[in-house]
Each structure stands twice: as C-alpha cells, then as structure tokens.
Amino acid sequence: MLHLDDKALSLPQVAHIVRLENENYRTKTFTLDVHWPEAYPGQFLMAWLPGVDEKPFSLLSNDPVQISVAAVGRFSRQMHTLSSGDTVWVRGPLGHGYQPQSGPMIGVAGGYGVSPLHFLARRLGDGRERHIIIGARTARDLLFREKFRAAGVHLHVTTDDGSAGQHGFVTVALLPLLERLPTATVYACGPKPMLEALRSLCQERNIACQLSWESYIRCGFGVCGSCAVGKDGWLACKDGPVEVILPARV
C-alpha cells in the first residue's frame, strides 16, 4: 500500500501456463511465464481462478515460477482442466520462507509438502550433505522421487503402509539421521501432526528445525488474522509460513 511501484504485485497478475507435467495420479506441476528472481524457498503465492477461488501454493521454483497442484478440491480440480497457454492469476511472492543454515540439510516432506523442499534442496546444492525424506500414506501418493534424485540428494522414502520404502512415518527415517548428523538443520513441510512430532524430536536432541505450517490464508499480508497458528497470534502468511526454531542450547 502506498508503494505504487509495488502496486502491480499486490493485485492478482496475469500469468500463462507454459508447461504442464504429471507428477502422480492426481498432481501436476505448472510452469508459469512469471519470473521472481528475489523469491526464495518456503515463500508462497496466491493463485486465482476467476469465479472459483484463490488458494495458496508453495513455490517449487522462482525463475520461472513453478507450483505443484494436487487435485483434491474444487479449485485444484479446476486447475487440472487448464492447458498450456491458459491463464491463471497470481499474487506473490508472499511470506517468510526457510533461512538456510550452514551444515547438513535434512529435508522432511510429508504428503504434498515436497515443493518448497525441492526448491531448497536445489538452493543448497553447494557440496554440503543433503538428505530428503519423503513420506506418504501409500506408494502411489509419493511425489518427486525422480526430481529429488535428479537434484543429487540422498533420498529416503517412507510409506504408512510399507508399500514403498521404509514402513512407517517419516520419523523412522529421520531418527538415525538425527543421531548421525547432530549439526544438521531439519527443514520440513507437511501436515500439522508431522510438524509437531518433528518439533519435539528436534528440541529433545537440541537440533535446529524450520517448519512450514499450512493454514487458511486470506489476505496473505498479515492483516486479516485468518491464518493465526497456535496461541501467540503467530501469522502463517506474514511471520511464516516457515517457523524457525533454534536449538535451546548452543
């Protein structure tokens, strides 16, 4: 507001789909003709389809902008009907994302939480040790296995039903890594119970973690209060979506 140079970025901007990629049976990656060189992993955009809704998506990439969309609701199913050349409106980049630390990376992605971690893993491809754990309910829900391998990370897979990778939650793969890499930072994105479990595990072991929380977003700029998480009035859209938790003892 009152920054007229930024005015254009505050309202939904026309974007065109330049490429579509199928990721699994219900997830597609959209590449847009939008370039946000200043955007970084963990930030998000609001995508608007007129007459449908406007929804938040973590950035998979910033230049060009990419998002992955799973068809799970009215908006996302509508997104899946679009083709190359079609229009979608976006606002962003929004929020505060991951703040990369030195030392090994342990990325934990639950379900659809893979996008910001793939973005981050690419950013941290500077020779450091990088591990990514992807967890899903079952094999066909797993996302980005090939993409992560292509990024050159150590990939660990878990499924709740044991249909692929290790049988169990992401913590099955995480615990041995935490033992072996006490100087690592855990970067995570996924459902709330997973993030809460990771927070406890990391705090018990005095390991830094950065958690990306999902919430209902309206304004996306810290005014409406719709996305408050927890009891302290922490706003997912403005203070987060990434919560940076430093180890209690250094």
Partner: peptide
C-alpha cells in the same frame, strides 16, 4: 471464497 482481502495500492 477468496479473493477476500486485497491491496490495490
């Protein structure tokens, strides 16, 4: 439904 809050400059 969204959009519900916008900054128009």
């Amino acid at each position: 439904p969204n959009p519900t809050v916008l900054d128009w400059g």
